[in-house]
Nucleic acid binder design. Structure first.
Lengths: 175, 175
DNA sequence: TATTGTTATACTCTATAACTATA
DNA sequence: TATAGTTATAGAGTATAACAATA
């Protein structure tokens, strides 16, 4: 349990980290804004998934996800296939072009971070990653929730856990 | 020097921390969005300053700063006095109402963080703050640059260091 | 001429609400 | 009825460019 002053300081740091994010955003290709990059990154990391799952991973409303997905689909970076198990759903997966785009993004981002963080040790970077992961976990972010063995497009959901191994969370943003 | 995979993971964490920031944003009063809160917080932390200095601290373009400042000034939370040393400049300072607003913001934010981070130790929170501070420093954020003893509204600037003890940086966003 | 600050404009991201198609 | 996804609309944040006032 930390002190009040520490919480205020942490809030300031969270506000200020936006400047770092904007720096990273400035090196993105003009046709691939941050929202598109996030979609490609998550599909590359977790593999094919439905819209609702992606919305959970992005931690934004489904309507926002739909827009981002439409953008990358329009550019041929992903495909939206019908889900045979549920005709309302669509399965998203990276195309070869999308994979190439993602590789390019990763290259640019890593290069910038390698430049800016040249005096950081491997352990220091790892520690920051670990603490940020735990921070998101403490805020209930599903991206860091325990993952069950992947069963993509599994047959039936049981109880409160859906077919993709993720405890059901709303994809509509809380008021 | 860290590995490529670590940089990619750090980039993902930076992208994902937006969800935490949005959670914090949801508890702000309706008439005090995040931009206004940042202005109040920085004025509370650093004291009176000019627009250009605030733009540096916010790490956003001066035009953005101008809008945020106008918002909080319209609500009487800050005052903009003419700078006797430079008639182009304006000195910003918190009013009593602004101080009260800031106290309210701090209270709400700390309360949410205390709730979410109830199982974090003081040292863990401190470590995260420390690493995030260094991250911003590595990206050249002036907020974490060494501060010289405060000489508000000092007479003359010398060399490339301005009257407020901060090495001159552009307040126009880099292309 | 250069700098401080303001304003107009445009773009991205996000949320709410209404809608459809399906379950 | 409830859920998956789309679209329209609105609001916040930011950047660029043009501008006025002053240095």
């Amino acid at each position: 349990m930390a002190e009040q002053a520490q919480y205020e300081e942490l809030a300031r740091q969270l506000s200020a980290v936006g400047a770092v994010k904007r720096d990273l955003g400035r090196i993105l290709p003009h046709d691939c804004p941050a929202g598109s990059a996030a979609v490609l990154t998550l599909l590359g990391q977790y593999g094919d998934m439905r819209m609702s799952r992606l919305a959970e991973l992005l931690a934004v409303d489904m309507s926002v996800t739909s827009r981002h997905v439409a953008h990358v689909a329009d550019r041929g970076w992903i495909e939206r296939s019908p889900d045979p198990a549920d005709k309302r759903s669509r399965i998203l997966h990276l195309t070869a072009a999308g994979r190439a785009r993602l590789d390019e993004l990763s290259r640019r981002t890593s290069q910038l971070l390698a430049d800016r963080l040249s005096d950081w040790s491997d352990d220091e970077v790892g520690l920051l990653i670990q603490l940020m992961t735990r921070l998101r976990e403490s805020f209930g972010d599903c991206r860091v929730a325990p993952q069950r063995p992947p069963h993509p497009y599994a047959s039936a959901a049981e109880g409160v856990t859906d077919a993709h191994g993720v405890t059901e969370l709303t994809t509509r943003t809380p008021a």
